[in-house]
Write a protein that binds this DNA or RNA. Structure first.
Lengths: 208, 208
DNA sequence: AATTCAATTAAACATTTGTTTAACTTAAAC
DNA sequence: GTTTAAGTTAAACAAATGTTTAATTGAATT
């Protein structure tokens, strides 16, 4: 789907406002005003508010899906290296799109007029990929046998999401309110990435 | 705060509807109708919609806070046992209150007219407690030295929350749609609890 | 029995909501 | 230069929103 400048303004603004105020909390008037377009343009281009958020989901979820697909291609890596790449990719994706991360979390928490099938599809893909990577590692003798794969995915996704959505709190509690926003985000991204890599390593293998 | 029957009806219904549709997605009319009370009773008892959700937060958050306070009292337990108790308590609390868990997750993801200070307060308490428990364990030589405490809390809270809010998805992907809701929830609760206990043990200590 | 005050109600209130309309502009195609 | 169609606009639409009002009920207290 290729969007023109005005459509992109609407999509970006809507993503931000949906993330910060929720689907029903962000009005089309707010979106139109902040995106600097006439209200009617939203219906004109996207049909309705529902279809607008659907467009946002389609745009972003496809991005994640494609990222996962690409990851599968790399064959010659060691099992743990593949896991590490997955962690890095996933953390990077949601760190770079914190607004969409918030929308996703909200969408999972409820049934807020959101394309549930799309979410389930990409989550399923995620689960299947991790399962495959861990099983492969086990067959090669690199990973231990007794592993709750599904819960490991929950830890990966849950930890990453939680760090993103509670950024403001972490900044406060960690006494990092002085440093600039971008720098803090970058630090957080690396820190959660390293944390998860260590976590998976110590759980999946015998080493530290 | 002691509420009468009608107030409790309102609080319970509002909690459920706020969780499922978001703060702005659940109208006071919906709440009044499902709680089987007149609309005006909500303003009469709680003042406004804002103050209604604040009352919900106050009710539930205090519950968690008190639970954490009690936990600190137990002194004679081994370091890992204390961690295990914390995990069990936390998982139990949010498993038994899935609606409020959803509201909390939404509230953290955004700024949806919610008492942010209250949330930050109880989260801070949680962080401080884990920090204390881990530091104690390290001093006693039971825990390893190189541990990212803050990220461990994120993993505990993030994983637990994520499991609760994506229950429906897990049920589907795990092919457990046949078994009754209560049984499934109980299974999930024990599974995530065990998963986190193993995780913390293998990260904090040298054993498995 | 009269008084008092909390509980309860239906109706009304002013805003805000998402969406549509109909007129107008722009610019490319013929 | 005319035609065509997409882009753009302010205004209007009905419906839904949170809150208040004013009247009524109920049951204790005096």
């Amino acid at each position: 789907m290729d969007y023109n400048q005005k459509q992109l303004q609407i999509l970006d603004t809507a993503e931000r406002l949906f993330a910060m105020h929720g689907f029903h909390g962000a009005s089309v008037r707010d979106i139109a005003q902040e995106a600097d377009v006439n209200i009617a343009m939203i219906s004109y281009y996207f049909g309705s508010k529902e279809r607008l958020i659907e467009a946002i989901f389609l745009k972003r979820v496809m991005d994640v899906k494609n990222g996962l697909d690409e990851l599968v291609k790399n064959k010659e890596l060691a099992p743990l290296e593949k896991i590490n790449q997955l962690i890095e990719l996933f953390v990077a994706k949601i760190s770079d799109r914190p607004y969409f991360c918030r929308i996703m979390v909200r969408a999972q928490a409820t049934q807020e007029g959101v394309p549930t099938e799309l979410i389930h599809e990409v989550k399923k893909q995620m689960y299947d990929l991790v399962k495959k990577l861990i099983t492969e590692g086990q067959k090669k003798g690199a990973f231990l046998g007794d592993i709750d794969t599904m819960m490991m995915v929950n830890t990966l996704v849950g930890t990453s999401n939680h760090v993103i959505i509670s950024q403001n709190f972490l900044k406060k509690v960690w006494n990092q309110e002085a440093i600039p926003e971008d720098k803090f985000r970058q630090q957080l991204k690396e820190r959660v990435s390293n944390h998860l890599k260590k976590l998976f390593k110590v759980v999946l293998t015998d080493e530290r």
